[in-house]
């Protein structure tokens, strides 16, 4: 049995080769065979294998990757359209903004007292 592949040509994943430094963290976090390293830089090998989880974009230190991330869950799409939160589905359709680098304010906030 081959690898399961979902719909073709729908994925929003983009790679900006100008920004890539070839660290390879995208290959490490991606749970599918989406990327390869080509001449020391990341390249998209199989876009249709991407499930838009957003791990690569969040972990890319140079913001070379972007993807409109979310959970591919029909029940969550229905719940979100009906404006309700389901108790049996753990998914959320549009996650809270967590992309990009934390600001200095976030950094301060995270410095909690030693023994709270």
């Amino acid at each position: 049995m081959g690898r399961l592949i979902y719909l073709k040509n729908v994925v929003t994943l983009e790679l900006d080769p100008e920004k890539c430094v070839g660290c390879g963290v995208c290959l490490e976090v991606c749970p599918h065979p989406v990327f390869r390293i080509d001449n020391g830089l990341a390249a998209i090998e199989n876009r249709d294998a991407c499930m838009e989880c957003g791990a690569c974009a969040l972990n890319c230190p140079t913001e070379a990757l972007s993807v409109s991330s979310g959970v591919g869950c029909a029940a969550a799409v229905i719940n979100s359209a009906l404006g309700r939160e389901s108790s049996s589905c753990c998914c959320v359709i549009e996650s809270e903004p967590k992309q990009g680098i934390l600001s200095t304010a976030d950094f301060q906030e995270l410095k909690l007292p030693e023994s709270s």
Binding site: H32, S69, G70, G72, C73
Partner: peptide, 9 residues
């Protein structure tokens, strides 16, 4: 499932 994207769904 472990491989469906939101755009696809």
């Amino acid at each position: 499932s472990t491989y469906t994207s939101l755009s696809g769904v």
